[in-house]
């Protein structure tokens, strides 16, 4: 039983890590109704910007974080100006395709930055000063293994969600953003500055990508594989709903816990390695029952 809880807690905490990435998708989806294929690349480039400033130029944490954030805001503004603005009122699929192109561009740019800063493409260790080691107390008293880093990540995610929820629900920009998500043209017609809103939301998504990149990078080094963490976020989004911040968190927790439990308890019967696709199977089943996700908005189209 103790092992079951260990797997469950570990899974929930892994799920928080997925949620961190999923949040970035939700933001963009809320504002432009598009699945941002470049979110994984944004996580990579954000983490790389931080590690370049901190390791290559020896800046202290807050300075490196601030400048990396500034870089992400710049990327957000440029994305709006160069990629999105020409596509206002175009079909959603065009926007989606544009984000695929953006992903390739950012991946290439990140590798160029890495070559320039560190000469090669080796993974860069990222140190946040929090040991990814078991908490001694829990270990000795209850023999339950919980990593202090995982708890830290969970706390960061909680703060992030609270801040985003406030931003969306309590600020003018937040409300404007929800209007934009509903209908570009209608939002424009009531005087909501679409360009401005998009630049903001892409910048906020850049901020979320930076936080996710730091968390993931601290665990396995800053490297190209960070772009693939986005794959883990997709089933989370399907489960939680593309438009809901709470959904990203709850979806992450459900996916994290169930894929770990499945890997540990079902894996051995089918040769293991089911973690890679189990989340997708769950998402697929979920689609059959509740296509809009747990917290997604139900759209009724009149025909």
């Amino acid at each position: 039983m103790q092992f079951f809880f260990e797997v469950l807690i570990g899974g929930l905490l892994s799920g928080v890590m997925y949620s961190l990435v999923a949040l970035g998708f939700v933001l963009i989806y809320k504002a432009s109704g598009v699945f941002n294929f470049a979110q994984g690349a944004m996580v990579f480039i954000a983490a790389l910007a931080y590690v370049t400033l901190a390791e290559r130029f020896g800046l202290p944490f807050w300075a490196a974080f601030g400048l990396a954030l500034a870089a992400m805001v710049l990327i957000g503004i440029l994305t709006e100006r160069v990629v999105l603005r020409p596509l206002v009122n175009q079909p959603q699929i065009s926007l989606f395709m544009a984000t695929i192109g953006l992903a390739f561009f950012l991946e290439g740019l990140a590798q160029l930055v890495q070559l320039w800063a560190f000469e090669d493409l080796s993974p860069r260790p990222l140190r946040l000063g929090i040991q990814d080691a078991p908490i001694e107390r829990l270990m000795s008293d209850f023999n339950v293994l919980v990593s202090s880093f995982d708890l830290f990540a969970a706390a960061v995610a909680a703060v992030l969600v609270a801040a985003l929820a406030l931003f969306f629900n309590k600020t003018r920009i937040g409300r404007a953003l929800r209007a934009v998500a509903d209908d570009h043209q209608a939002a424009l017609s009531v005087g909501i500055p679409l360009k401005y809103i998009w630049a903001i939301v892409w910048s906020v998504a850049g901020f979320v990508a930076l936080v996710a990149g730091l968390m993931w990078g601290a665990r396995s080094g800053v490297q190209f594989a960070l772009t693939l963490v986005a794959l883990k976020a997709l089933p989370v989004l399907i489960l939680g709903g593309f438009e809901s911040i709470a959904g990203a968190i709850v979806g992450g927790l459900i996916i994290g816990a169930s894929e770990k439990l499945a890997e540990v308890y079902l894996g051995p019967y089918v040769g293991g390695g089911i973690e890679g696709w189990f989340a997708y199977v769950m998402a697929l089943l979920f689609l059959l029952v509740r296509p809009e996700g747990l917290f997604g908005e139900k759209h009724i189209d009149r025909v």
Binding site: G10, G11, L226, K260, V264
Partner: peptide, 14 residues
């Protein structure tokens, strides 16, 4: 087994 690319190994190590 560790699924590709292997940047998440929580359940394996548990």
């Amino acid at each position: 087994p560790v699924p590709h690319p292997g940047n998440e190994q929580q359940s394996q190590w548990l």
